[in-house]
Design a binder for these strands. Structure first.
Length: 118
RNA sequence: UAAACAAAUUUGAGUGGUCGCCUCUCACCCGCCUCAGGCGGGUGCGGGGAGGAAAGUCCGAGCACCACGGAAAAUCGCAGCCGGUAACACCGGGCCACGACGAAACCUAAUAAGAUCGUCGGAGGGAAAGUGCCACAGAGACGAUACUAUCCCGUACCUUUUUGUUUCAAAAAAGUGCGGGGGAAAGGUGAAAAGCCCGCUUCAGGCGGGACAUUCCCAAAAGUUUUCCUUCACGGAAAACAAGCGGGAAAGUGGGUAAACCCUGUGAGGUGCAAGGCGGGAUGGAAAGAUUUAUUUUCCUCCAAAUGUAAAUAAAUUUUCCCGCUGCUGGAGUUGUAAACGCGUCCGCCUCGUGCGGGCUCCAAACAACCAAGAUAGAUGACCACAUUUUUCCGCUUUCGGCGGAGAAAACAAAACUCGGCUUAUGAUAACUCGUUUAAGAG
RNA sequence: GCGGGUGUCGUAUAAGGGCUAUUACCACAGCCUUCCAAGCUGUUGAUACGGGUUCGAGUCCCGUCACCCGCU
């Protein structure tokens, strides 16, 4: 789990989902915007259609936040972003290590600024 | 007594370490307002951090706002009795000619049924207010009907017999066919047959009596509640409610189905913490709708412009939500010890009873201790090591099997204002109770 | 969080409490054709699950499960 200030504030979520830029990794749909902080903020949203029980849904969200905490927690960045991660259906059979690889390679180390310029 | 199986109740998933999350108290630091102090942010020590079902949202409440002069109707529930309770569709007790299964006395040639007893279950008012439905089969399924059998009358004169006669004709009786009528005591059908039983009688209807159910009255009563008296305690008295049981009277009706409509009694105003209150409203986001202004496009008109119509975009205006605090965590609370009464159950004793004494479970006065979840796109996770169980693969040994290594799994499932129940999911391990089976022993 | 609704062969649909549960497409088999298609004939296959009421439930009542739709 990451602290409250490292998570995207609640009132920005609707705005990011509607107006933010978007791309997909192997396991996630990602929507993001720039922010004026010196660190990136994250939020994981899991659909009730993906996992029906509340226990499984809470566990997946905690694992995602745990990966972000160990790999990216409050890292200093010049151009930080607010990111929302939405898991896709093919995340279900994956182990913790496989999810960790996908987030590290495709999301945290991705140069978001280039895609904006393009 | 032991073992196995099954059910109910209680318990609710190992240990340690690293990093990390939410919240509370205290201390320190920073910033702002003000100078008692308050607000915001940060750091550190310490405390706390999901369940028996948090679930389904099926009932009952608290709490909050809105509406409201009263009554009735409609709609939606509930349904024998007493009590527990804030309340309930929950729980406990006892009742029932309510149902199922079992036992066996009496009766009987024997069986069945039946009064009785035991166990389990029961959404258990009313079918004598009315309406509807009851397939197939069957005569008939509820204002009864007329198939078979049966009785009466008429008729045919086909058959037989008798009387009579030469014969024919005629008459009577029986049988058969046809028509009309009487009529429910017999049958087979069916889940169910005009309610049941007994006696007398008729060609057949018919008559009388009994038992049960219904209503009213009377007497007593399981049980419960309240009050009073007395006592160390046991206890006693009175009043109220009282299902069912018994007696008497009336009525003179009787198939089933009300989880069919309905009738009777009884209850319910609506919305739900996203209720509601306070603050903020600077910027921004979402939704809704309208107005104004500007631009662009289309249409009408047209030489063109302006005006008008429709659409899109932008800006402004309005409302609601998004934000912070509150409601918000202490409540009909939980745990432990446990008196007395009482229900249940087991054991012993005798005078064998609605008996006495004792043990256990439940219930529970009183006392003590504790209250430490309050998140808000929603706080408990990840990794490592060890231990237990199950399982897969590989290697060694090899009769079942054992040893070593690697991997996987270890229930159902997570608060969202708070309680009381119900229902459903799961059941490692342990405890206790009841039941069944087997084995051994005793009578 | 709150509320409403629906479950019938593989698919889409019928069925006043009274059947061996209807019809069409699909599937399978046969006929027809040189072969395929079309056509004809036949077969298989279902009341979501568990109880209750009733002589008798797809239907009535209760409880689960799955799915769908609203409010927010």
């Amino acid at each position: 789990m990451i602290s409250t200030k490292s998570r995207v504030p609640r009132q920005l979520i609707a705005y990011i989902l509607k107006k933010g830029n978007s791309y997909q990794s192997d396991l996630f749909i990602v929507r993001y915007t720039k922010n004026d902080k010196h660190f990136s903020r994250y939020r994981a949203i899991i659909s009730k259609k993906l996992l029906r029980g509340a226990v499984d849904r809470n566990k997946l969200r905690r694992q995602i936040y745990e990966i972000i905490r160990t790999k990216d927690a409050e890292r200093e960045e010049k151009h930080a972003h607010d990111l929302i991660l939405i898991p896709k259906k093919n995340i279900l059979p994956r182990t913790f290590r496989q999810i960790e690889d996908d987030i590290t390679k495709n999301i945290i180390n991705r140069p978001h600024d280039q895609s904006e310029q393009a």
